[in-house]
């Protein structure tokens, strides 16, 4: 483990002041990703600012019928919150599909958003990685890239964002509330994470002086017709090879609103507005779902070991949309895929 200075933030304003004054410091909340990365010496912050005691742990209803979730609500508490289970079951399901109960008890909502990729080459400091060391190259592109991205990749990075929670937040059109030196702003979850381009070292659009304070869910929760299907190399406690979040609003068998996002395939939760447009007004059936899958994956590109992900994603999209339409969401305990 590296050595570092440790400080606590007294409140949000103090946290922002401290992080702005020290460009190499990092916030720590749950620590489940950062401490791991520090042990591997992938992250070497000279100073940690502990934000875990800030009063950002409430879940409150908003005047518009949505929910405002404090950034420090543990993942478990969020997944088990009665209002989330009732109104946004796809979010509960996605959270419960990720990590282990011990990690979910520690991990915070805000920290889940800013967790880093699990690309093997990012974690191995002896390998080239543009995300870890800009300009050093990408060892994954010609390496063992089974877990890597098939959508939105660049010549400098094929890493994926590992979160399950964020895939559900993307279909729910959640917003991220952040506070920085110049005040507070909102960022749509779909605009929060970035594609790698030629700056893969920048995971998201959070500024250096900003702290995530809350996640806001709009009123529409797709509680009737939704599913989160996660495909991985073992049945639990593994990152997604491909995951799909599907949410439908149906009206006499036709799709009024369809939402679709994928995890494990890109540098960000992958939402396809074009595929969603192709769902709108159509019969909720296999032909419609297959067409949507074709649109999502039209520009998909494999890198050898991960070529299988394209077909896997196509089938997973159709399966998850079918589960959503039939109101038979994937169970995260019973592993049979129906």
């Amino acid at each position: 483990m590296i050595k570092f200075q440790y400080d606590r933030a007294a409140d949000v304003t103090d946290a922002v002041r401290q992080i702005a004054a020290d460009p190499e410091a990092r916030f720590i909340a749950g620590g489940t990703n950062l401490i791991d990365l520090m042990k591997y010496q992938v992250e070497r912050p000279p100073r940690l600012i502990d934000i875990s005691r800030l009063p950002l742990t409430s879940v409150e209803e908003t005047p518009g019928g949505g929910l405002r979730i404090g950034a420090l609500v543990p993942n478990t508490d969020l997944a088990y919150h009665p209002l989330v289970e009732q109104r946004y079951p796809i979010l509960s399901s996605a959270i419960m599909s990720g990590a282990s109960q011990q990690l979910r008890n520690m991990a915070s909502t805000g920290g889940n958003l800013v967790q880093r990729t699990r690309c093997f080459y990012f974690y191995d400091v002896t390998m080239a990685c543009n995300k870890r060391q800009p300009g050093s190259g990408c060892a994954a592109i010609k390496g063992i890239n089974r877990i890597n991205a098939i959508l939105g990749t660049s010549e400098s990075c094929i890493a994926t964002h590992p979160s399950d929670m964020c895939v559900a937040l993307a279909v729910l059109d959640a917003k991220v509330h952040v506070t920085g030196l110049s005040g507070s702003r909102e960022i749509a979850v779909v605009d929060f994470h970035r594609l790698p381009g030629d700056t893969p070292q920048i995971d998201n659009n959070l500024r250096r002086d900003e702290i995530i304070t809350a996640i806001e869910l709009p009123a529409q929760g797709f509680a009737a017709n939704h599913s989160y299907l996660k495909i991985r190399d073992r049945l639990s406690y593994a990152f997604a090879l491909v995951s799909v979040a599907a949410a439908l609003e149906l009206e006499s068998g036709r799709i009024k609103t369809g939402r679709l996002a994928l995890g494990g395939v890109a540098h960000k939760p992958w939402r396809s507005v074009e595929a969603e447009a192709a769902l709108r007004g159509q019969a909720a059936g296999p032909e419609t779902f297959a067409r949507a899958a074709e649109i999502v994956l039209r520009d998909a590109k494999g890198f050898g070991h991960n070529d299988f992900k394209i077909d896997l994603a196509r089938r997973a999209i159709v399966r998850t949309l079918t589960q959503a339409a039939n109101a038979t969401p994937q169970s995260q305990a019973d592993k049979r895929i129906r």
Partner: peptide, 27 residues
């Protein structure tokens, strides 16, 4: 594993199970 992947270090903190290897004692 000392990396939050095996659970051998599980303890209860304020009644909840966590991985003690990924927890700083000062926190």
């Amino acid at each position: 594993c000392d990396q939050g992947q095996c659970g051998a270090c599980t303890v209860l903190v304020d009644g909840r199970r966590i991985n003690s290897c990924l927890t700083l004692a000062v926190m």
